[in-house]
Computed example of a mutant assay.
Amino acid sequence: MSRVKDSIYGILQGRFLTDDSSFNNWRILIFVVALLLIMISSSHSLDAKVVKIAELNKMKREFRAEDFDTSTELTRMKLESNIRKRVKSKGLFPAEKPPQKIKVTTNKE
């Protein structure tokens, strides 16, 4: 049991970094630290992309609502009753008699 206790104390005191065979331990630690830095960096990059996607989705919903409002307004402007109101001020009124079709006949000689 004392052997396990000594090894735990050795790890806590950092003897594995100062021993003669510590070069291998340093290489592993540097590799692990590099992996951790890469992981943290990719995590931050992913978070930034998620925020950007959320902003773009919000803008998309706003543009879709604006498009719907604009098309509704355009449809209302095209209604015959709306057009009659707008041209009434200019003195134009709908015809009382329906239009007649004009037929042109040509004689071949």
Rank of each mutant, 00 (worst) to 15 (best):
residue 1 M to C: 14
residue 2 S to F: 05
residue 3 R to P: 00
residue 4 V to W: 13
residue 5 K to L: 07
residue 5 K to N: 03
residue 6 D to E: 05
residue 8 I to D: 10
residue 9 Y to K: 05
residue 9 Y to C: 08
residue 10 G to H: 11
residue 10 G to A: 07
residue 12 L to S: 06
residue 12 L to K: 06
residue 14 G to D: 01
residue 14 G to K: 01
residue 20 D to N: 12
residue 21 S to F: 12
residue 22 S to M: 02
residue 23 F to D: 09
residue 23 F to Q: 14
residue 26 W to M: 01
residue 28 I to G: 01
residue 28 I to E: 06
residue 30 I to M: 10
residue 33 V to R: 01
residue 33 V to C: 10
residue 34 A to K: 05
residue 34 A to C: 00
residue 34 A to V: 03
residue 36 L to I: 03
residue 37 L to H: 14
residue 38 I to Q: 13
residue 38 I to P: 02
residue 39 M to A: 13
residue 41 S to G: 15
residue 42 S to L: 00
residue 43 S to N: 09
residue 45 S to M: 10
residue 47 D to Y: 14
residue 50 V to Q: 12
residue 50 V to H: 09
residue 51 V to A: 15
residue 54 A to L: 07
residue 56 L to I: 08
residue 58 K to R: 03
residue 61 R to G: 05
residue 65 A to M: 08
residue 65 A to C: 11
residue 67 D to S: 07
residue 67 D to N: 11
residue 68 F to Q: 14
residue 69 D to S: 13
residue 71 S to H: 09
residue 71 S to G: 01
residue 73 E to P: 00
residue 73 E to K: 07
residue 74 L to P: 00
residue 74 L to N: 12
residue 77 M to P: 08
residue 77 M to W: 12
residue 77 M to S: 08
residue 79 L to R: 11
residue 79 L to I: 00
residue 80 E to Q: 05
residue 81 S to A: 06
residue 81 S to H: 06
residue 86 R to Y: 12
residue 86 R to A: 06
residue 87 V to W: 08
residue 87 V to R: 02
residue 87 V to I: 05
residue 88 K to A: 06
residue 88 K to S: 04
residue 89 S to C: 02
residue 90 K to L: 10
residue 91 G to Q: 01
residue 93 F to L: 07
residue 94 P to Y: 15
residue 95 A to E: 11
residue 96 E to H: 04
residue 98 P to H: 13
residue 99 P to Y: 15
residue 99 P to C: 09
residue 100 Q to A: 13
residue 101 K to V: 08
residue 101 K to R: 09
residue 102 I to W: 09
residue 103 K to R: 01
residue 103 K to F: 12
residue 103 K to C: 03
residue 104 V to S: 03
residue 106 T to C: 06
residue 107 N to T: 02
